[in-house]
Write a protein that binds this DNA or RNA. Structure first.
Length: 221
DNA sequence: GGAAAGATTTTCT
DNA sequence: GAAAATCTTTCCT
């Protein structure tokens, strides 16, 4: 992945990230995911962006050069991560929402608190009802959703500001072909502002894409 | 200075 | 389907 690829307008760059591989390494091991779902956030022009109202300590990385990781903490318990794109001082970023684990599945399961799949003989011998849908692969959910993606890759606050393009970085966007089909598009998940903008991109029919949830206003007391 | 909402996930009913 | 968990920023008094 070349930095110049990430320097363009966020709506051009975001779909290009689909199918590319994000890999994190630590002393625990390595986990890599193939990105299947992203959302574009266009800095000062986008009421849904963290950078819409200017720079704060939290979003400072968005105001830097492209190719760095912006990690934020939300809902008091979750981390989400973005790839910073666009020219400096144009704080655009791409939220990484979901991916398919292609390396380090065992470590990802441990981080997500999932037991290893049981290879029970009983489950193979006993046929299920004919009309019942096959059970969903539990590994499908390991990185299905932005906070789950961070957990699976072991990314937290310390990942903020990581250089995704440096060869010695613990978190890297790897070279390689991305998704070459036509991405699906739709409104971004969970946003109150600018819900009309179809700035979410995903790989069609991929099971690891997170389910769409519209914004639900909290009741006031 | 305080209240409210949030680019979410899990668990329970 | 609804509620809880609980940090950071924003907005309003």
């Amino acid at each position: 992945m070349r930095r110049s690829v990430l320097a363009g307008p966020v709506l051009d760059v975001a779909p290009k990230l689909l199918g590319t591989v994000l890999r994190s390494t630590s002393d625990e091991g390595a986990v890599a995911v193939r990105l299947t779902e992203v959302e574009a956030y266009d800095g000062p022009n986008d009421p849904g962006s963290h950078a819409y109202r200017g720079q704060t300590p939290r979003n400072a990385v968005m105001f830097g050069p492209p190719g760095f990781l912006y990690v934020y903490f939300t809902y008091g318990m979750h981390f989400c991560m973005n790839v910073v794109v666009g020219p400096e001082n144009k704080p655009s970023a791409v939220l990484l929402r979901a991916g398919e684990i292609i390396e380090g599945v065992e470590l990802a399961r441990i981080r997500r608190g999932q037991p290893a799949p049981q290879k029970s003989v009983l489950n193979q011998v006993r046929p299920g009802p004919v009309n019942k849908r096959p059970a969903a692969d539990p590994d499908r959910d390991l990185a299905r959703g932005p906070a789950r993606l961070c957990v699976a890759l072991g990314i937290g606050r310390e990942g903020n500001g990581a250089d995704l393009l440096a060869k010695d970085s613990p978190i890297r966007l790897l070279d390689g072909p991305g998704y070459d089909g036509v991405p699906s598009t739709g409104p971004r998940v969970g946003l109150r502002e600018a819900a009309d903008r179809a700035w979410r991109f995903w790989i069609p029919n991929d099971p690891t894409v997170s389910p769409y949830r519209p914004h639900v206003p909290k009741k006031r007391s």
